[in-house]
Amino acid sequence: MSLEYQKHIPLKAIPFVQFLIDEHSFDLFIVNQRATKHGDFRKLPSGRFQITVNNNLNKYQFLLTLVHEIAHHVTHQKFGRVQPHGQEWKTVFQHLMLPFIHPEIYPKEILPYLANYLKNPKASTDADVNLSLALKGFSADTGKDFIFAITFGTLFEFKNAIYKRGNKRRTRYECLNMHTKKVYLFNQNVEVKIYNS
């Protein structure tokens, strides 16, 4: 197994991650960014297990995503076919994350949000706005803004299309696609680029 992952996670996390890799047999690949997911776990036709994690994540996001995917693997080994993010996975994920909930691994700016998220982890860390923002605070400046931070009526670019920010509905924003005139719902912590015509 390549040790390339070590440069993607906090230094103090390496022994714990290496233990998980040694304990549970799988191939780990670090891949180019995918728009719809940070990582994934799958059983290959050969019977081997594979975990992939996006290479654009900062080390705190990368570590959380990696342990999230290892939890899928361990859940599969222990319980067979169950709900992907059901109670079995939640319990395994919480257990596997315990050694990492430490100020030597996660900064104190992230720890309270991470601890709160782990009380009832969701399928995606992006579903937890506070944790998502705390994690992204340690990324390089991308020149983008969060949907919730731009004003009503502002034009922005997202995936090569121009949208206009509309009203908020509970946790998401209505945004009008300026080309198709269709309204789409955007998560409040999606990162977009302000449109300058």
Rank of each mutant, 00 (worst) to 15 (best):
D128Q: 05
A13G: 12
F41D: 00
S124G: 01
D22P: 01
Q33K: 13
Q6D: 03
F16H: 13
H179W: 00
Q6M: 11
I70M: 07
I51W: 09
A123V: 01
Y163N: 08
I14W: 00
L118D: 09
F148M: 10
K159W: 05
G80A: 11
G39Y: 05
N167W: 02
Y173M: 12
N120H: 13
V67G: 11
Y163M: 04
T91Q: 15
H85K: 14
N160Y: 12
L118T: 07
I150W: 00
L63N: 14
P15S: 11
T142E: 13
F29R: 15
S46Y: 11
P103H: 12
N54W: 00
V53K: 10
I9Q: 06
R34F: 10
M178E: 12
H179R: 08
K37V: 01
D27G: 12
V67F: 05
H102M: 06
R169F: 06
T91N: 15
D141H: 00
N116Q: 07
L63W: 13
E69A: 07
L133V: 15
T75N: 09
Y113L: 08
L28K: 10
L96V: 07
I162L: 12
Q6W: 04
Q61M: 08
Q87L: 13
A140S: 14
W89H: 06
H68N: 13
F158R: 14
K159N: 14
F29D: 14
D141T: 00
P10H: 07
I194S: 04
F100I: 01
C175D: 10
K136W: 04
F26V: 07
V67W: 03
Y173T: 11
K159M: 11
Q83T: 13
H95W: 11
G166D: 03
Y195S: 14
F41M: 00
F93I: 09
G39A: 02
I51P: 12
I162V: 15
S124A: 04
L20G: 13
K144M: 10
T36L: 04
G166K: 04
T151H: 15
V92P: 03
D27S: 15
L185G: 01
R172P: 09
G47N: 10
T65A: 10
R165F: 00
V74C: 07
R48I: 00
G137P: 06
S46P: 08
P99W: 09
N130W: 05
N167G: 08
P99I: 10
N177L: 01
K90M: 15
S197M: 05
T65H: 12
